[in-house]
């Protein structure tokens, strides 16, 4: 648990001891000591398994109403573990199906933003100079804009379709990655070991694969872990406003929106999807924090 304490010691200690161990082994040891991060990892694994397998195990379908049970509270007798909504649909299945969409959006949109961010940042960093300057000014410019609103505008203009959600969120969320990758590329470009590799006749591809990618991997992992919850949040925000996924699909945000409207009569229809959503975001954030501490002990806020 004493992550930061440990970090402080490590810094104060003779650095030779630390450099002896490999970065990854060391990071792994730090992570294993961070019980909150490990618990979060467990929560996420269980969550993914549940979301995939759960709906298959259930007797109910997320669209077909149970004509005998409208807005019934959770109970074992009716077989509706999380109760039903105002249309008589089983909330357990709906929550898990919604979770599939939310997690899927989170992962796919993150990958989109990763792709854009890495290409953009690598190009800027690789060329450097004026190109870099211009490209980064553009990024700074977009940074200053209310990007959530642009997502909404994109949704409004191009219609509400799930693929668009991936792209729209990914398209506005790549800025951080671009900055990170650019910085890393710039600093790596002129490192002695890259020069040395080049002098030894390594091709650009080999250099990128052997030197640049491994160095970037750590930041990318942390970035992905912290971006997925952001994206899930944006999607559920859109769905909550009625601008995200549309019926018959659903997501945690859409379910929370429905639940909020039945707050007085059927609070469970809010609490279950909200709980799943919050637990997932919480676990991702904690894991991301833990990974960051583990991989880069100096940069811990």
């Amino acid at each position: 648990m004493n992550e930061s304490e440990r970090d402080a010691f490590d810094q104060a200690l003779d650095t030779r001891v630390i450099q002896g161990r490999s970065l990854w082994v060391d990071a792994w040891h730090r992570l294993l000591k961070n019980r909150a991060a490990l618990a979060s990892l467990l929560v996420l694994v269980v969550m993914v398994a549940l979301v995939i397998i759960g709906p298959m195990m259930s007797d109910w379908d997320h669209e077909i109403p149970d004509w005998d049970n409208y807005s019934t509270p959770p109970s074992l007798e009716t077989g509706h573990l999380f109760g039903t909504d105002a249309l008589g649909r089983d909330l357990f299945v709906r929550t898990l199906i919604g979770g599939r969409i939310s997690l899927l959006v989170g992962i796919v949109a993150t990958l989109v933003s990763l792709l854009i961010g890495i290409s953009y940042g690598a190009i800027a960093g690789y060329f450097g100079g004026r190109v870099d300057n211009l490209m980064m000014r553009f990024v700074d410019g977009i940074y200053a804009m209310p990007f959530m609103f642009f997502v909404i505008v994109l949704m409004v203009i191009f219609g509400r379709n799930i693929f668009l959600i991936f792209v729209a969120i990914g398209a506005v969320n790549w800025l951080d990655m671009a900055r990170i990758v650019r910085g890393q590329t710039l600093s790596l470009k002129n490192k002695p070991f890259v020069e040395a590799a080049r002098a030894c006749g390594a091709t650009e591809m080999q250099i990128i694969r052997r030197h640049i990618v491994p160095n970037l991997l750590g930041v990318v992992i942390v970035y992905v872990t912290l971006t997925i919850p952001q994206v899930i949040l944006i999607e559920s925000f859109l769905s909550f406003l009625g601008l995200g996924v549309q019926e018959p699909l659903t997501s945690w945000g859409a379910l929370v929106n429905e639940g909020a409207q039945e707050l007085e009569t059927a609070p469970w229809s809010l609490l279950f999807p909200a709980g799943f959503l919050a637990a997932t975001l919480f676990a991702f954030n904690f894991l991301g924090d833990g990974l960051r501490d583990a991989l880069d002990p100096k940069d811990r806020v």
Partner: peptide
């Protein structure tokens, strides 16, 4: 002396 994860310095 300093207590560290690697022992007491």
């Amino acid at each position: 002396s300093f207590s560290t994860p690697d022992g007491v310095v």
